[in-house]
Amino acid sequence: MANTGWDEFEIGAMLRTFEGEISDIATTLQEDRKYTQNSSFSASVADWRIEKPVFNKDYCIDCQFCWIYCPDISIISRDKKMIGIDMDHCKGCGICVEVCPTNPKSLLMFPEVADEEREIENWPAKEKKEK
């Protein structure tokens, strides 16, 4: 989108987030919405990340803690299952990893450049609880 100077846009201007007529957005999933370029959904903050979360579904129990506590709507849960991470909107805060209750964790942070498949292959083993 072209940048507009602060003195160039109209007072009372309105930004439209969706194309055409919209009803019941609250029950329409992101993949079924027609976002305009004005929605920040159309933008990316992927370049903010130094580290990224990697998801290993083998250990996931679909508790949805990561979904509720992700500040950036980047945990994709569908039909009550965690299915992946939205890497355009994830800022790499690491909250999802902290709140993941499984052992070993189903989400771990790695450097942005890390190879996901290799990290999943070398996933840490279950940690023994200290007595």
Binding site: T4, L15, S39, F41
Partner: peptide, 8 residues
Amino acid sequence: VYPYTSWD
């Protein structure tokens, strides 16, 4: 942040 909004 013009021209973006994060609100649906």
